[in-house]
């Protein structure tokens, strides 16, 4: 009986040197975008729970717009659409980082809001009753507790954003999937190459998972 399964391990391993140049691009877009997204998320997450309505509604609009539209459309809009508005081109790397930043920023806003709102009202009351100002209560009591609760969902968002960068092959930025496509165009070994591409994403996301689990464990040690 003939074996129909044909997986060419040599082709798979042979593709590694051609795929590796994509890794730094994937990491740069992911972590560059997430770093900015984190600050956007904190800013808009806190605006979202402001007692002032005129601070709240821009945050609501921001979250709804960027959470409610596909990230692929967002990056296409930034890369192809915005230059028509600005009159100058935007390079693919910048567009990719910007897309991850605004997209993850919207989700992180919700994570921040949820984290802060999850802290029992009594924590704030106890802080105020001791004479702490509202900002001191937030800084020393509410935020440290909220941040601990935010670590698991933030890790989740990090992993999602890393995988989202694979979509940016469409704007020609040389990340992992793009490198794979280029290589397959000359070798026609789609099975092996996409397998290796998937494996590389898995290595990146798995490493992040392990790091986060350690961070979480250390963060919870005091509780």
């Amino acid at each position: 009986m003939e074996i129909t399964f044909q997986f060419d391990w040599a082709a798979a391993f042979g593709s590694i040197p051609h795929l590796l140049p994509g890794v730094p691009w994937t990491l740069l877009i992911s972590f560059g975008g997430l770093a900015i997204g984190f600050f956007i998320g904190i800013l808009f997450g806190l605006l979202r729970i402001s007692p002032l309505r005129w601070l709240r509604w821009p945050a609501i609009v921001y979250v709804e717009v960027f959470r409610g539209t596909p990230i692929l459309v967002q990056v296409l809009f930034i890369f192809y659409g915005l230059p028509q508005l600005l009159g100058s081109p935007i390079n693919a790397l910048t567009a990719g980082i910007a897309a991850i930043a605004v997209n993850s920023g919207a989700y992180i806003s919700e994570i921040v809001r949820g984290g802060v709102q999850s802290i029992e009202r009594g924590q704030r009351e106890a802080s105020l009753s001791l004479g702490l100002s509202r900002s001191q209560a937030f800084r020393y009591v509410i935020w440290p507790q909220a941040f601990r609760r935010m670590i698991p969902p933030l890790g989740n968002q990090g992993i999602i954003s890393i995988k989202d960068t694979s979509l940016f092959s469409v704007i020609g930025v040389g990340e992992l999937v793009r490198q794979g496509q280029i290589y397959i165009a000359t070798t026609f070994t789609a099975l092996e190459v996409y397998f290796m591409v998937a494996l590389m994403y898995l290595v990146i996301t798995w490493t992040l998972s392990i790091l986060l689990r350690q961070l979480e464990r250390r963060g919870l040690a005091g509780q």
Partner: peptide
């Protein structure tokens, strides 16, 4: 004016001694 609450409301992320020293250091 000090207050003691039904649910204690200690700060769970701070040790016992840090719970007590926080306000005197930051407020006083």
């Amino acid at each position: 004016v000090g207050m003691v609450f039904q649910q204690f409301n200690l700060f769970p992320h701070l040790s016992v001694v840090e719970n007590i020293t926080l306000a005197p250091m930051k407020v006083r």
